[in-house]
């Protein structure tokens, strides 16, 4: 079966994000970018399913600026077969991304779509669910396991109280949680091979999707900072502070 995986280019999770002084957003100039970690997990899952003989073709799709081609190349170095960039510029909202991806899905007809559970820049946690709703497909969010059995899949989801097991009909959308797998490192030979894999670039207009934002960002601010704490010498002092100063125990 064919799998479609969505990948987003984001600021590296280990970079300290700084809010611009004019409050218009966060600093992105000269900042290390990378594939959203949940998307790496999604790609890894598809590659493992291909290695296991369950999947025949992996298409990776990204919506963003031209630089997102690098992210698609990384996914191809991990083992994806081909890449599609929807060149929509920057700051596309999840609803618009989901509509663009729906248009691609209708052309590609995958049996399974894997997205990350959350993009670590906007922290929206919406896109997979939205694609699934627009397609009228089943969804399984926050999965830590998936096994395909013909035209259904058994999945385990990470929920607030523990784990949930579902059987979903295919085609479906699933979103990856952290413990689905541990993504592989890309190797130099595979990076070289990925350069030769096909990459298509499409404009949103060609897909007939209106990407006008629905949300206007009025300002972006630093969170309130905490007042400086005190170092205590030992456990006795800690307990005394908690009892008499903070009065929390």
């Amino acid at each position: 079966m064919k799998v479609l995986v969505t990948v987003k280019r984001v600021i590296d999770p280990y970079v300290k994000v700084r809010v611009k002084s004019d409050g218009s957003g966060v600093e992105t100039a000269n900042i290390k970018m990378t594939m959203n970690p949940f998307c790496e997990i999604a790609v890894e899952q598809a590659v493992r399913m291909k290695e296991a003989g369950v999947v025949t073709e992996i298409v990776v799709v990204s919506v963003g600026a031209m630089q997102s081609q690098e992210t698609l190349r990384t996914a191809m170095a991990m083992g994806a077969d081909r890449g599609i960039l929807v060149d929509a510029g920057v700051d596309i909202e999840p609803l618009a991304v989901a509509k663009l991806l729906k248009a691609i899905i209708q052309k590609e007809n995958p049996q399974l779509v894997i997205t990350g559970k959350q993009a670590i820049d906007d922290d929206s946690n919406q896109t997979g669910q939205m694609i699934s709703a627009l397609m009228g497909w089943p969804q399984a969010t926050f999965i830590s396991n998936i096994t395909v059995n013909g035209d259904t899949a058994d999945v385990t989801r990470e929920i607030d109280g523990g784990l949930e097991k579902l059987t979903i009909k295919l085609p479906a959308v699933v979103t990856s949680d952290l413990r689905l797998n541990e993504p592989r490192y890309v190797t130099l030979p595979n990076i070289m091979k990925a350069k030769k894999k096909p990459m298509e670039v499409i404009k949103p207009d060609a897909l007939g999707v209106d990407v006008t934002p629905r949300l206007k960002t009025l300002k972006v601010q630093e969170p309130p900072s905490r007042s400086a704490g005190v170092k205590v010498a030992d456990v006795k002092e800690l307990v005394a502070k908690l009892r008499n100063e903070a009065r929390v125990i």
Partner: peptide, 21 residues
Amino acid sequence: AYGKNVLPRVAASLDVQQISE
């Protein structure tokens, strides 16, 4: 996990952009 699972489906079906968290 409950709200994040359901509401984006509602939003997309209504053609609105959910405001998360």
